[in-house]
């Protein structure tokens, strides 16, 4: 794997291979010495144009468990705000000798520009770009689902036969996009539930089904309910009238939680708006995988960094 920019173009086999390696990485996390020497001498740069402490420390932990050297680079601004440009930053990192760049950027496509520009030769991992994709989040979600439903038999399996309902601000969510592609590639059936204002024009061509009503979506048994974070500023832009109305219609409250099947799990990429898209009861219930998602994130990111940085450089898709 040369770069990981999106899940859109990952094949089923590639995705399963990443999840399988992540299983091995997860085993390491249970040992007393949680460290492997695999990436000794490699330099991983966490290049964050947007603040995201959660994602950054997850990548940092992953790189360190593989013995890579980690440099955290919190870049201020972009060429929009006349801060340092992506190009200058990339060339600086190339000069430092970065082997992999984990990039978080507010602009959709920025990691792809970095990977194809020729400014830097390093492998690029997209750690969230604008409203485009967040591929490692989708991989850790898929990993979490697979472990929850298949346990020790997870290796080598995809998600065929499972159904996933993704609820919330799909329009602005890179997590929703990456999950829609990845989970369907892995054979899961995906339903998106959102107010029509928070679904992108063109979503009807995605390999998913759409429901405007959470109650009607939950009337059909589902294995996974994934709640997306809703940002309060969407309210002022008239995407929905009030937080209260949103919570009432599209929030996973205690009453809806009680209606879920026994085996249904509840996921959230974090950080959660308790009381808005998810109630505390749902967030803290035994169905909730929120904390597992965090620890699985490290395993999945270890797998991605390992696959990106071991072996000879080759240009795979």
């Amino acid at each position: 794997m040369r770069h990981l920019l999106s899940t859109r173009h990952l094949s089923r086999d590639e995705a399963v291979a990443i999840l399988d390696v992540a299983e091995d990485m997860a085993d390491v996390s249970t040992r007393e010495i949680k460290k492997l020497p695999a990436l000794r001498g490699k330099t991983v740069v966490n290049l964050f144009f947007e603040d995201s402490t959660r994602t950054r420390i997850s990548f940092e932990a992953a790189a360190k468990r593989l013995s890579a050297d980690v440099i955290n680079f919190a870049a201020k601004g972009s060429s929009v705000s006349k801060g340092e440009s992506l190009k200058d930053t990339a060339q600086t990192l190339a000069a430092i000798g970065a082997d992999a760049v984990v990039v978080r950027h507010g602009a959709s496509g920025a990691p792809q520009v970095l990977a194809t520009s020729g400014w830097i030769d390093a492998g690029v991992v997209n750690a969230g770009d604008g409203t485009h994709e967040h591929p490692t989040q989708a991989l850790l979600d898929a990993f979490t689902i697979r472990r929850r439903f298949f346990g020790a038999d997870a290796r080598g399996r995809d998600l065929a036969g499972l159904s996933v309902v993704i609820v919330g601000d799909v329009l602005h969510s890179r997590v929703a996009r990456s999950n829609a592609w990845l989970l369907t590639t892995l054979g899961a059936e995906v339903r998106l539930v959102a107010p029509p204002t928070l679904l992108p024009v063109g979503v009807e061509t995605w390999p998913v089904t759409i429901d405007y009503s959470l109650d009607s979506a939950l009337a059909t048994p589902t294995d996974v309910v994934m709640m997306l974070r809703v940002q309060a500023e969407r309210m002022s832009a008239a995407f929905f009238p009030t937080a209260r109305e949103y919570a009432r219609l599209w929030g996973l409250d205690d009453e809806r939680l009680a209606r879920l099947d026994e085996g249904t799990i509840v996921m959230h990429p974090g950080p959660m708006n308790r009381g808005l898209e998810i109630s505390s009861g749902a967030a803290d219930s035994a169905r909730s995988t929120v904390l597992e998602q965090v620890s699985n994130g490290v395993s999945v990111r270890m797998a991605v960094l390992y696959l990106l940085l071991s072996g000879e450089r080759e240009d795979l898709a």
Partner: peptide, 21 residues
């Protein structure tokens, strides 16, 4: 005992997929 992650030739040749320990 999988030794993949401890090999001294990881950056050479193809990508090696680890096996369970």
């Amino acid at each position: 005992l999988d030794v993949t992650m401890y090999r001294d030739d990881l950056s050479r040749g193809r990508i090696r997929t680890p096996s369970p320990t």
